[in-house]
C-alpha cells in the first residue's frame, strides 16, 4: 500500500533547505534569468522592476505580468519565485496557477491589506516572508510561511538594516534559549507569536524553517557578512543588475556566499570587480518611504 502526498509542509520547507548556501537573484527579463542561472544562482525572483527602480518610479507596486513570469520560467531550469503584495491572496492564487516554485509575500510591493497577511496554509505553493525580528518571523511561520528572510531595506545597496534585522532575530532566539520552560508562555505573549512555535524555536536554537537574508546586499563581502551572522542563503535584488558588470558581480556574490568564511576567496572574487550599485544612506530615506516597516 503506497500513500503519496504532494505539497506537504515538509516538501515546502525541503525546497528552502535545498536552496541553502546559495544566492537568489532578482531578474526582470528572461535574458537576465539566463545570466543569473549561468552565474550559479540557485533560484531567480521574477519581477518587473528591481527594488531600487520601484523606489524611483513610485506609485503602486504590484505582482508582475504573468507573461513575464512565464517567459522567465521557460528560460531557466532553476526554481522561479515571484512576489505578491502583502495580504493579496488573489495575486497569490494567480502565481500558484502559474506554477511558480515559491511566492514571496513581499513588503517591496505596496501592501494590499494593512492588518492581515495571507493564510499561507491554504496554498500548495510554498511562501517566503520577510521579518525584522523574531516575533514577526514566528507570526509568518504561524500563517504557513515555509521560509523566512530578514527584510533589510530593499533597493538601497546598504547592508545596515539587513544586519540589524538578522541580529534581532538571532538575539531573540538566544533569549528564548536562556529561559525556563514556564517562561516561554509569557515570551510568546510578548513576541505576539504562537506558543508552540516559540517552544520549538527555544528547543531547536533556530527558527523551525530556514532563515535567509535580503535587502541591501551589494557586494561579495556583504553576502559573506550575512552568512556569518547566520543567514543560510542570500537574496540579492538590485545589487547585481544595477552593478557595472552584472555577470562578474553575480559570479562573485555566488562564490562569496559559498565560501563565506574563507577570506582568501573573498579577496580573489572582490578584486577589480568594478562599481557596485550606487547605495542609499538610510537617513536620506523618509520613514514613510521605508519598505521594511510594511508587514504586521
Amino acid at each position: 500500500m503506497t500513500t503519496i502526498q504532494s505539497s506537504t509542509f515538509a516538501t515546502k520547507v525541503g525546497l528552502a533547505r535545498m536552496l541553502s548556501g546559495g544566492v537568489i537573484m532578482d531578474v526582470v527579463t528572461a535574458e537576465q534569468a539566463r545570466i543569473a542561472e549561468e552565474a550559479g544562482a540557485v533560484a531567480v525572483m521574477a519581477l518587473e522592476r528591481v527594488p531600487s527602480d520601484i523606489r524611483k518610479f513610485g506609485g503602486v507596486a504590484r505582482m508582475s505580468d504573468p507573461r513575464l513570469i512565464q517567459e522567465i520560467k521557460a528560460a531557466v531550469s532553476i526554481p522561479v519565485m515571484a512576489k505578491c503584495r502583502i495580504g493579496h491572496f488573489a495575486e497569490a492564487q494567480v502565481l500558484e496557477a502559474l506554477e511558480v516554485d515559491y511566492i514571496d509575500e513581499s513588503e517591496v510591493l505596496t501592501p494590499a491589506d494593512e492588518e492581515h497577511h495571507i493564510d499561507k496554509h491554504g496554498f500548495r505553493v510554498p511562501f517566503v516572508c520577510g521579518c525584522r525580528d523574531l516575533g514577526e518571523a514566528l507570526r509568518r511561520i504561524g500563517e504557513g510561511a515555509a521560509l523566512i528572510r530578514t527584510k533589510g531595506e530593499a533597493g538601497t545597496g546598504n547592508i545596515v538594516e539587513a544586519v540589524r534585522h538578522m541580529r534581532a532575530v538571532q538575539k531573540g532566539i538566544r533569549q528564548l534559549q536562556s529561559m525556563r520552560p514556564d517562561e516561554l508562555f509569557a515570551a510568546a505573549k510578548e513576541l505576539r507569536a504562537p506558543y508552540e512555535l516559540v517552544r520549538q524555536t527555544a528547543e531547536l536554537g533556530e527558527l523551525p524553517v530556514p532563515n535567509f537574508s535580503a535587502g541591501g546586499v551589494a557586494t561579495p563581502a556583504d553576502a559573506s557578512l550575512m552568512r556569518q551572522l547566520g543567514a543560510q542563503a542570500v537574496f540579492v535584488g538590485s545589487g547585481i543588475f544595477k552593478s557595472e558588470n552584472p555577470e562578474r558581480y553575480a559570479r562573485a556574490i555566488v562564490k562569496a556566499t559559498t565560501q563565506f568564511d574563507n577570506p582568501e576567496v573573498l579577496v580573489e572574487v572582490s578584486a577589480g570587480l568594478g562599481e557596485p550599485m550606487r547605495g542609499l544612506e538610510l537617513s536620506e530615506i523618509p520613514v514613510e518611504e521605508r519598505l521594511a516597516v510594511r508587514g504586521w
Partner: peptide, 12 residues
C-alpha cells in the same frame, strides 16, 4: 515536475 509536484511517499 516542479515544486507543486513535490511529494512524500512510502517506498518499496
Amino acid at each position: 515536475g516542479r515544486q507543486l509536484d513535490s511529494f512524500e511517499a512510502d517506498l518499496e
